[in-house]
Design a protein around this nucleic acid. Structure first.
Length: 216
DNA sequence: AACCAGAACAAGATACCTAA
DNA sequence: TTAGGTATCTTGTTCTGGTT
């Protein structure tokens, strides 16, 4: 495919605290305080600093904040796919809740291959995620080994597993399916069929299928 | 000249100490 | 009380000095 290389204009360096401090003729400490501990800065100095910052288009650099505070305010979510509305909805709510607490969510999709999950989890942690949300049982031995070390808080969803190595919020897919079938049987139904998703890489599907097979 | 190890430096924001 | 000065955080890159 033919392509044309156009010279990109050099990006303007964004203003930092030092630029604001120089322009406002105060120290960087005063700039920092004007934004974060305003009560410790006289009102007229604060107004001057904030006006200068606005004029220069200053906005705190999240990378620098993370460096200094050792907090990225990032949480990671590793989910199988965004093709299914159920996962997309969950991520929406997850983002909403964390955003209200000042956290940003990075989403990584893993597909239904266990081998991918460990790689994605590692990437999320390397990128600074302070906590992780996973989906389903943790079955990859490498991931199990990794999560046994106390890196960051992790929660897994969709499956209720009593002996999981991390906390979980989810359903007992086996017993839920079993209860549904018992209910149908009580109503007098005698012929059953099941439409299930692909069990590969999904402990949820396997539990439901297993409950169905045990029942019939 | 080539190589290695260790020091210095860079980024941006903030905590802590000091001075007025 | 207010504000200045500076160490600190991480980590990759560059510099410096010593050795072979």
């Amino acid at each position: 495919m033919p392509s044309k290389r156009t010279k990109q204009p050099k990006l303007k360096k964004r203003a930092g605290v030092l630029d604001v401090a120089r322009a406002a003729d105060v120290s960087v400490a005063t700039v920092s305080r004007a934004f974060n501990i305003p009560d410790l800065v006289k009102a007229d100095v604060r107004r001057h600093v904030l006006a200068t910052a606005q004029r220069l288009g200053y906005a705190a650099n999240p990378a620098a904040k993370a460096l200094r505070s050792r907090k990225t305010h990032i949480v990671g979510a590793a989910i199988p796919t965004l093709d299914y509305a159920i996962f997309a909805k969950m991520i929406n709510h997850f983002q909403d809740v964390f955003s209200r607490q000042g956290y940003m969510t990075i989403v990584a999709t893993t597909g239904f291959e266990h081998a991918n999950v460990f790689e994605k989890v590692k990437t999320l942690v390397d990128r600074g995620a302070e906590a992780l949300l996973l989906v389903g049982a943790i079955e990859d031995p490498a991931l199990v080994h990794y999560l046994k070390e106390p890196h960051i808080p992790v929660v897994t969803t969709y499956s209720y597993i009593t002996d999981e190595i991390v906390p979980c919020i989810g359903f007992d897919n086996y017993n839920a399916t079993k209860s549904a079938m018992e209910y149908l049987a009580d109503l007098g139904h005698r012929h059953f069929a099941m439409i299930a998703g692909n069990p590969k890489g999904s402990d949820r599907q396997r539990s439901r299928i297993s409950a169905y097979r045990d029942f019939i």
